[in-house]
Amino acid sequence: MSKMLEVKNLKVAVDDVEILKGIDLEIGRGEVHVLMGPNGAGKSTLARTIMADPQFEEVEGNIYFEGENINEFSTDERAKLGIFLTFQNPLEVAGISVEDFLRTTKMELTGEDISVLKFKRELQGHMQDLDLDQVYAERYLNVGFSGGEKKKGEILQMSVLNPDLVMLDEPDSGLDVDAVRIVSETVADFLSDKNKSCLIITHHSVILESVKPDFAHILIDGKIVKRGGPELIERVNDEGYNWIREELGMEKVHDEVLD
């Protein structure tokens, strides 16, 4: 059986400068993968390329979803296949409420009419899980949201839209302890459905304690330089990346901040 996601020799360049230099990645159904690496290594670029971000025009290699080559699929087509990406900086859309937005999107994804009332109830359930106030649904999408509200909003959208593969791009950065716990629990709960797969980009261990990743990939300078299991995550959290650089004969970087 084919993997849910297969990325083969993916190269991405911006203005002739290579950012991703041949990435291979396989994510099977029910698996949780964590992508780690120092700032600027290309982690977000990888996730955004899988989502077909039009800002990356120079893309080489192949991406398969459920065995199908999706290279030519546009962003919305990929979303309809069941791929979802949380944004680090979700955009503000004034004039469109969270509820309106999600109902429209949900109808677009499922191709079904969803009654306003039924949807409201479902949304309220998800919002309670995330400890979001009920007025949140009526506010304009991401407009005037605090950092925490924006992050939670992304997770809320994940819960409502119910994708198969979720890519979480630093879902926990800038959140306070309580919020990290709530977000972690919601994500873990979502992934308890063993048909869901996840690629998570994070520096924090709190969320990883909840979601319990199966595999870890270390991305440095546009290449996945090391793969392993949960033990690798622990070592990176304790020691940073220099020991990997050393192993690979790369130049060590000092004063690296593990943020």
Partner: peptide, 25 residues
């Protein structure tokens, strides 16, 4: 903004419509 909306599964036109609508709200 388009990428964000399309990543949630809205078509390009649908996303454009939403953004225009949002400016008129």
């Amino acid at each position: 903004q388009l990428f964000y909306l399309m990543s949630r599964g809205l078509s390009r036109k649908e996303s454009e419509g939403l953004i225009v609508e949002s400016r008129m709200t």
